[in-house]
Design a protein around this nucleic acid. Structure first.
Lengths: 357, 357
DNA sequence: CTGAAAGCGCTTACAG
DNA sequence: CTGAAAGCGCTTACAG
């Protein structure tokens, strides 16, 4: 390793020397602060230009570390067996926290019950009382989310939405997939694998279907693919507001008795494992089954062939990136991409081993 | 933003104070350096344990920045129209360089002709002469690569392999996909989309097929899926050591005249666009076509439906991660995962827009 | 409007 | 075997 040589990145000291001022003044110009005469300001800016000065991010962070703590609030569904999905974003958030807590970032976590809008409300009130410096949340309930976003706007608190978007809620940014398109993709896969004569079933399992933007958008996308491409398969629908196995199985049973020759089933969220369990018990494993998310249950059914395709949108990375975005914005005032669209990944029995959430 | 409070991460100073020694001695213990009495060493280690001391990476890097430059060498195929694929790893390398050049890392790039083993040889000699501190390369030619790895071992220079692996070449680490499995995955997709009576064609297009480990492994994996699952489709083979369109088209023409009812074609590398062009011209777009890599040409054919699936292994991330790994190893002596296996992504017409290499 | 000095947490000669 | 001091490049009171 030889000693670093020439162009070794001039810093504030060098600029100060060339401009015959102190580094404090250089700093003022770099940060566009008040109280520098036009003349010296111009002189310093010229030198910065000429030297193509790039601040040393390391040193900047280190110096800043001594300042105050930044407090972020995170609002996500709580994690139960049924909603294990949300572990992934949380993992990402934890990872981000580990990386940046050295810079004085603290993260407060709030959880709500996905089946209970009032629990969302309650947590929102708590957060508002805490006055965090930035918020990360997922707008599962559009109306209730509005309370939060309105308050944030009033107080100038930046907020990031992950996993699903609500157009018109003007956030700092959205990090997640284009969910309409993920339904579209599911339809493409179905079309590859199913005969033209077979029927296709869309299953929606959630306590709050009508108020669940993501679930509805996915079905829209799914249906759009068929109509855009003039594909004639008959599309059936099954909704279940009860999310337990018994209830879903019963409904499926009734439907399948009535409708013969269903070639594929598309479940619009991570509850696909419930359907997989039913198909396995009923000996209907030749039906193509697609659903969402890389949860433990789902992967088990993927392995044994009950589930054919899982669509996955890197939930862990969403959490990670969400926190990092707030960090970038609050600490460095970086400009932020309004929509960070995640890839829409296709997971099968033969590539799940290598998947990274 | 309130002032940081309590547990605000004790540092070397605090440790030194508690152990009643100087911070220099603490530093010696942290880095397991010689010349500290057992007694003080134990005392300091106990305190480090108790405080759960985490070094401040920022400060460490900043302090280290003043040391010498680290020089890395990168050896990749040159980028032509035909081998545009290699732009992606190079992009990743450039990105990594931008992030770490502040820490005194310099990267020297060397290119060889993928169709000419002697050009690889020549570049290896150049690199050896330069005595870099670390090397990143792709072992397309096993024998010629051995010259490089042997020399590195002798001199203790760490090297990282990306994109394809050669088992037994004991590198610092391999970053890339499990290529056998990527062939396996391709076969699964084919099996979903093709009738049992149809034939399947494997196409290998490369100047040096027999000496190209990756291409052979992918075919192995592809075939293994069929035999493991006792699937009976007849598998045909077409090899072309000429990589230009005219030559490949001619061979395909001959084969397709002889063999009727080919349901799918699997091309074992990024040259799949050549086959796509042929199928489009021949009006055979109903044949399922699969191949590798997110190149501009391939994506064009994906869009128009000539290619159905592209398998992609994040080449840009491979380059990025390769450089970062050498950096971690050389600067922080971090322990490195021996095999960093990339996901094997499935790209279609309906999700390519969101893919990130 | 401007500057001298201290500090961020760590590393490294150098001196004993 | 151990310590005092300078330095990494930047930021921030504080004093003028």
């Amino acid at each position: 390793m030889k000693k670093s040589t020439d162009k070794s990145a001039a810093g504030v000291k060098e600029i100060a020397r060339l401009a015959k001022v102190s580094i404090a003044t250089v700093d003022r110009v770099i940060h566009n602060r008040e109280g520098v005469s036009e003349k010296t300001k111009n002189k310093i800016q010229a030198i910065i230009q000429k030297l193509n000065y790039q601040p040393n991010v390391l040193a900047r962070r280190l110096a800043l570390a001594s300042r105050g703590t930044i407090r972020l609030a995170v609002l996500l569904p709580n994690i139960s067996g049924e909603t294990e999905f949300w572990q992934a974003p949380l993992d990402g958030i934890n990872q981000a926290e580990a990386e940046i807590k050295q810079y004085g970032i603290e993260i407060e976590r709030y959880f709500f019950d996905q089946n209970d809008e009032s629990s969302f409300d309650k947590q929102v009130k708590k957060i508002i009382r805490q006055k965090p410096d930035g918020i990360l949340f997922t707008p599962i309930f559009p109306e209730e989310s509005l309370v939060l976003t309105e308050d944030c706007k009033k107080k100038g608190i930046p907020y990031v939405m992950i996993n699903s978007d609500i157009p018109g809620y003007d956030s700092l940014c959205y990090i997640g997939a284009e969910i309409f398109h993920s339904g579209y993709l599911a339809a493409q896969l179905v079309n590859y694998c199913v005969a033209k004569t077979q029927k296709v079933l869309v299953v929606k399992i959630a306590r709050e279907i009508d108020n669940n933007y993501a679930i509805l958008r996915k079905e829209d996308g799914f249906r759009a693919y068929f109509s855009d491409n003039k594909i004639q398969n008959k599309i059936l629908t099954l909704d279940s507001k009860q999310t337990d196995y018994a209830a879903v199985a019963k409904k499926l049973d009734q439907l399948i008795k009535k409708e013969n020759d269903i070639g594929a089933i598309f479940v619009t969220n991570s509850r696909v494992s419930v359907v997989a369990k039913y198909l396995r018990k009923a000996g209907l494993e030749n039906v193509l089954l697609l659903g969402y998310d890389f949860t433990k249950d789902n992967v088990e059914f993927l392995k044994d062939g009950s589930i054919d395709f899982l669509i996955c949108e890197k939930p862990q990375e969403q959490g990670y990136r969400g926190v990092m975005t707030l960090f970038q914005h609050l600490v460095y005032s970086n400009t932020i991409e309004k929509n960070y669209l995640m890839p829409i990944d296709i997971i099968t029995k033969e590539n799940y081993q290598f998947y990274r959430n």
